[in-house]
Amino acid sequence: MSVLISVKSLRKYFPVSGLPFAKKQYVKAVDDVSFDIEKNTVFGLVGESGSGKSTLGMSMIRIIKPTSGTVLMDGVDVSTLRGRERAKWSSQLSYVYQNPVSSLDPTWTVEQSVSEPLAAAHVPQGERKDMVLQSLASVGLQDYFLEKFPHELSGGQSQRVAIARALVRRPKFMILDEPTSALDVSIQAQLLNLMMDLQREYGLTYFYISHDLNVVGRVCDRIAVMYMGKVVEIADAWDLFSSPMHPYTQALISTTRFKSSNFLGFRLTGEPPSPRNPPTGCHFNTRCPYATSICFQEEPKLLVAKGDHAVACHNLELVAQGKIQVPQNFQPVSAGGNRPQGQVD
């Protein structure tokens, strides 16, 4: 296995408008994030809304310009590329957005939408139609879809068109930003299968952004969990679900197990703090039942805990033993679930 994408200390800060002459404030949407994505794998990114998932995805391929940090693709720093080199690099990438209806131009036919990336890459006019047809066929759409407009398509069909458009230049790397969250479960299952088939068939590498842990756990090989602009845990997918180490990951996974007898973790109370003004120390300390004094002073670093499993937490031992420190941040499960292991001090 070799690394395709390597993200190193990537940051994206957005300035917040405040009073004139006041000290400039920033929302740290992505704050010092580093990870590697191996070729031919599906790398998942989970987190709740506002955690910075999409900002991370977009800054990785410079749809928005990162504040600092580097992204290497095949070992090349993409920010140094200019002119033809840069165009060649960008033709190897594509992005699929969440809402299939708003990501297609309503006044364009499917053919126009899907062939646009080819026009941008100066592919001769005569060759475009065949490539468009091939791309549509690979997502299971027949020739007669060429003349259709977005309003004539169902949600699932629109998302297939968006994927066909992303595939048409034969990219190496695709960012899929919540590609199925606007769809019904039965259509979602079809799309997930299609995307996994395409990934295997064309040897693609995916960066899969989603808030849905079940989906990410199903389709991804490796998963990063994000909270308030930071990656708090990275592990292989099955490892993350069988032995989550960060308290936030544990809480997230517990949300997918409403009535499971082998309930693990705890229910989170409260809501994430404002990203304008994050707590000092660990950003999770306002909601964490394991927080001790160090969590309020020092930001934990993402460190390898075992094998390929990295986690950013000061109190891994307390968490592993289930020793709750802050009972008011802890809520036992009421509806049928079991109380978690460990005692409330």
């Binding site: 079809q190 079940n214 199903r218």
Partner: peptide, 22 residues
């Protein structure tokens, strides 16, 4: 067709689906 996390690296990613649409 509800996706569930895989339990090992070898488990298939493919889901059972309902063909067609409503």
């Amino acid at each position: 067709s509800i996706p569930r996390p895989r339990k090992s690296a070898d488990e298939e990613k493919t889901l059972a689906t309902i063909p067609g649409s409503p």
